[in-house]
Design a protein around this nucleic acid. Structure first.
Lengths: 338, 338
DNA sequence: ATGAAAGCGCTAACAA
DNA sequence: TTGTTAGCGCTTTCAT
């Protein structure tokens, strides 16, 4: 059955013979108590009329849409899906919905999305930026809570969460060294003004083990970027016997390039990467990678956003998360079939 | 600068020495014209005060949040990311945002999400259901426009869009036959009461070419599902020399299983699948697949939703889209490097 | 335990 | 061209 006009709280009140206020009390289980008998009548009316509270009116009154905005870049982040899901779940647990937007590796798009979300008055924004130092001026100007993902502390006074890049890279490269590799190249993200922790970690592992600095090739953070970079790297004189990439997407591209070059993985060229996406489990050979604790990051991000919204004078927190090595075939470890 | 209270339209009106209505006219570029001089004053006031219209109030008044809900299943749909992006873009072109929810292959979760979106009063819902015949009773009861994705016509009176499953499967299997294969197995989706067009197409191609019906193994629509099914299929006596899967995700899993069995692709076992996700481009060997016109589907879906919302007595449309063969290495075609 | 009523900020019909 | 004003449906304080 459909009505011409939506059923409102007033309709319910009339039907249940109570005042509109009581309907609110029942629907919101507060702030006043309602006699069970009355409550039953209201509930019945709601059921019969098929009443659904108007979200916009509620949002207007409460000054909260109970919506978060999430800005991700599918081009770059192999964890896109995992992250989006985890955040959606974490938000839902707090009764929040998530508007998902994709910046597609474009800073301009990212900024546009940010403006857009601000205009929509979302209650908070989670941003996995394309840039190391994102432009969040529109967001700050509007006073909308924001938490940076995939990032630790590059923007003063803005909370951020991210993997321990340097530590993870160090562990990954050290693992490669443990397999006996001496020439270890790296495919990094696009050059930026901000040094990437993964590069630092790679370098540190190399130098601590007395190894020469291998080739470093910046590339777009995407499968194709990794593919191109790996192709070039394999053509170097004295090409590396192992490659560390800054993300799974690049590694997936690198894998293809290595196969095309007719080389064997991991015998001729070993690969290890960073992220721990599901895709990495199903490449050939399966990809060894430093797994980020996505669910934990997502939960903490939502918590941080909520804290910001609540507005207690909590100081911005920069948290980084330890990654764990997921050793599979691509680095030379034995595969554990799924 | 942050104010204690948000800047409202009234503040702007006062500052610009005009009535609140004029501010609205300027902000909405209508419905009345405003003298350029006045408009400039208003614009200036907006700039100075940093005014942002309150989305909730606007939604309340207009009875539209300008938000669509999208329910997808990441487990199942390899096109998850592509589809989500395409829909987000298409919606944004109409000034709509998209709340993304993931049912994770669970019908119960799907229903919960649907209820949730309805409660939020989104302007419409796009659903790529876990089931062939989704339970959308909550949505219909609320009179919320809905369009089914990945589906053609299983629910009466509800518009739906989807790939031409049978035609695509027929083309894929015929292609395999063209490569000389005689025993072609299929990994399908979970058995349902509704026959899957891909199975029909597979069967038809086989029989039209006078070939025996190959093994058919239903499996979860996921990488892991495809992996398991392929393992089993390869162990059959007289295992097929080619496998058609109902989706890229399954194919990716199958690839892994075949590699693990020490067989070569495509020499020992060829693979072809359905979807055309980006991931398929970077498997090893690259995966031949029937590509769905995702962008077109997304645009049409949004258009259909808008039409439904506008409510012209448009009859429900069931549209199916032709898929195109993306031939790559896994079926025996030459790879065209990316 | 219940009700009356004041807005939340905005759009747009109607008035001037 | 500009202003006045009546709601949109809801939450919640303050009365009863």
């Amino acid at each position: 059955m459909t009505w011409d006009r939506a059923v409102t709280r007033n309709d319910v009140a009339r039907y249940a013979q109570v005042s509109p206020a009581v309907v609110s009390y029942v629907v919101n289980k507060g702030p006043k108590r309602v006699r069970p008998e009355t409550e039953a009548r209201v509930l019945e009316a709601i059921r019969v009329l098929g009443y659904r509270p108007n979200a916009a009116a509620r949002a207007l009154k409460l000054r909260s849409q109970e919506i978060f905005g999430l800005v991700l870049s599918s081009g770059g982040n192999a964890l896109f899906v995992e992250l989006a899901n985890a955040i959606e779940d974490a938000a839902k647990a707090e009764r929040f919905a998530v508007i998902l937007t994709n910046s597609r590796a474009s800073a301009a798009k990212e900024r546009e999305h940010l403006r857009n979300l601000v205009a929509r008055q979302v209650d908070g924004i989670l941003l996995a930026s394309v840039d190391a130092v994102p432009d969040i001026s529109d967001v700050s100007a509007a006073g909308v809570p924001i938490v940076l993902l995939d990032n630790t502390g590059t923007v003063p006074a803005v909370p951020s969460l991210g993997a321990d890049l340097e530590g993870g890279a160090y562990a990954a490269v050290s693992h490669l060294i443990g397999h006996g590799h001496q020439r270890i190249g790296m495919i990094s993200g696009p050059p930026g003004d901000h040094p990437d922790g993964r590069e630092t970690g790679w370098l540190r592992a190399l130098s601590e083990h007395g190894l020469p600095e291998g080739p470093l090739l910046p590339a777009k953070v995407s499968r194709f970027g990794g593919y191109q970079a790996a192709r070039r790297m394999l053509a170097f004189p004295g090409a590396p016997t192992a490659i560390f990439t800054s993300g799974d997407a690049q590694a997936v591209g690198a894998l293809r390039a290595i196969h095309e070059a007719g080389k064997h993985i991991p015998e001729d060229v070993a690969v290890i990467s960073f992220d721990g996406s599901t895709e990495a489990e199903y490449t050939w050979p399966p990809l060894s990678t430093m797994r980020q604790p996505v669910d934990e990051i997502a939960r903490d991000a939502v918590t941080a956003l909520l804290a910001l919204k609540a507005g207690g004078g909590t100081p911005p927190q920069h948290r980084h998360y330890t990654t764990t090595l997921q050793a599979r075939g691509s680095c030379g470890c034995a595969d554990t079939p799924a």
